[in-house]
Design a protein around this nucleic acid. Structure first.
Lengths: 168, 168
DNA sequence: TTTAACTTTCAGTAATTTTTGAACTTTTGA
DNA sequence: TCAAAAGTTCAAAAATTACTGAAAGTTAAA
């Protein structure tokens, strides 16, 4: 396979994967493009490579910055902005985990705690099943939460070697 | 909070969470409803609780069965089908992990292996960056894969106690 | 074998999400 | 201070995804 074909496949696959996980396809594609670009790119270049509009490029770049996956670079003597993606996969994974935890896990845990307080009749089967499900999911969510928190603090090498020590 | 309100909030939240993770909102809501229902429900009951059409209910129930999260039950002397959800969160988590691994992780690993074979000029910076990113993502994907495989085989208690032994 | 209860399918419609593009704003150098 | 170059915004259009409802298909009791 040629480099140019490989690059296209990579961008396409990253976009597809993103959309399967609730991330805007274009955002994932821009990220993919930056990941395989040695130098920072301008909006213009991104628009051209992916054949997308200026508005689209601008908005998704802003989101990527919001996710902490891309940074703006300024070059003295130039008006243009350049965009650069951190290429350390461990950082990427942690950053994504961190954002999704904040946006999704934390609110769910908050709700589950509220739902744990629902009062009802202990003889009501609906109530018993509700309580039991909420309790179990809450427990799982808290375990995941704790694991994520550890991961966010951890060094990559330590994290994986720990995993493997157990899971070998 | 009353039980009826809690049930609605739970269904709503589960649906939202699903859609944020690329799972059809209605499918997640049906799952939520079954999770808090002590008895198996009929299509009719699900349609009514969630105010959705017969076609919608039928298709999403079929998908839930495909994900291994819901089972059909037959009752002798009755023509109707009943639907029941396993309420063990560990089973649910493993089942979801298993399906997503099969549907998404496995294909991505296959592609990454192909992309590792891309040939190019070692002096070309684009090529070097491409190779390096593909290699790193591949490594991460394989680590995730291995961890998932272990998780799929593991017992819940063993899994979490292992995690916590390390992450305490 | 008929019939009624129930399930499945799918073309058309609706809802949601994403993208465009042009107007508007900001920045900078002359 | 002005104008060119770049960045931002957002209403409307396009694309995608989900839902409906009615017709077709299936099953089992009578």
């Amino acid at each position: 396979m040629e480099l140019s074909e490989g690059r296209l496949k990579f961008i396409e696959a990253w976009g597809k994967l993103g959309s399967e996980w609730g991330i805007n396809r274009t955002m994932a594609q821009i990220h993919a493009l930056l990941l395989i670009s040695p130098e920072a790119l301008t909006t213009e270049e991104i628009m051209e490579e992916l054949t997308i509009s200026r508005g689209n490029a601008n908005m998704n770049l802003r989101d990527l910055i919001g996710w902490g996956l891309v940074e703006k670079q300024h070059r003295s003597g130039e008006r243009k902005e350049y965009f650069y993606a951190d290429k350390d996969t461990w950082n990427i994974a942690r950053q994504v985990a961190k954002e999704r935890k904040k946006r999704e896990l934390d609110p769910i845990i908050k709700l589950l705690n509220e739902l744990s307080e629902v009062k009802g009749d202990d003889k009501d089967r609906n109530y018993k099943t509700f309580r039991s499900s909420v309790k179990d999911i809450n427990k799982l969510a808290k375990n995941v939460n704790k694991t994520l928190e550890t991961m966010l603090k951890a060094e990559e090498s330590w994290f994986w070697s720990s995993i493997f020590k157990i899971f070998k």
